[in-house]
């Protein structure tokens, strides 16, 4: 168990027991915990220990791997005063892919979580703004999941085609339209619909 990580050493005993393991690689420590303990640990790091800089939030998808849970959320934390950086990895169950948001501790989590939601479909409970971020609103998938192919599912081919017919340019409609992209944006109904239609699991 963790040895030379000041952030771990400074934890109170009850929180220390919540840390499942501590891995060190090239001098950088990664702590692991369960989703239920994520909020308590992060609150301690932020409020008691002064890890005031949330460098990054991201996730990993361990589909079909022999891991504890399918998802692993990664928080990279830094304390400017101590000049120390470490990571907190949080296991997240596939069937309950929701985890408390930490946007109230660090504002940078607002967009970090939003992007993670967009790419993995993980819901950060409490984050006020979990619309699609990089993908179009009605994109039917979460692209960074391991079961989503690199080349997508032909979404990139389905656009109207502008062709010359006689003396004018007209648009030819494709047969199918999985993404309509030009629809009304950011409506709550729409977000609900996307969540319903594109569950991150098979």
């Amino acid at each position: 168990m963790a040895d030379n990580n000041p952030a771990y050493e400074a934890l109170p005993a009850d929180l220390k027991s919540k840390v499942l393991e501590s891995v060190e690689h090239q001098g950088q420590v990664a702590l692991r915990c369960k989703a239920a303990d994520q909020r308590a640990l992060l609150e301690n790091f932020r409020l008691s220990q002064g890890y005031d800089f949330l460098v990054d939030v991201t996730a990993m998808d361990h589909l079909g791997k022999d891991t504890e849970e399918r998802f692993e959320i990664v928080y990279v934390l830094r304390s400017l005063t101590a000049n120390h950086t470490f990571r907190l990895h949080v296991w997240l169950d596939e069937s309950d892919n929701a985890i408390p948001s930490v946007f109230d501790l660090w504002d940078s989590a607002r967009w970090g979580e939003r992007e993670t939601h967009d790419m993995f479909g993980i819901v950060f409970e409490g984050n006020p703004d979990l619309r699609r971020f990089l993908m179009p609103e009605d994109y039917p998938a979460f692209p960074l999941l391991k079961d989503y192919p690199l080349k997508g599912k032909e979404e990139r081919r389905q656009f109207p085609k502008v062709v010359a017919r006689g003396d004018r340019m007209v648009e030819e409609e494709p047969d199918t339209y999985p993404t309509s992209i030009g629809r009304q944006m950011h409506t709550p109904e729409y977000i609900e619909e996307v969540r319903r239609d594109s569950k991150p699991r098979e």
Binding site: M135, P143, Y148, P149, L150, K151, G152, K153, E155, R156, R157, F159, P160, K161, V162, V163, A164, M169
Partner: peptide, 12 residues
Amino acid sequence: YTLVQGVDQFIP
């Protein structure tokens, strides 16, 4: 998945 493979598919 996200990149149009050539704009000539959709505009001249």
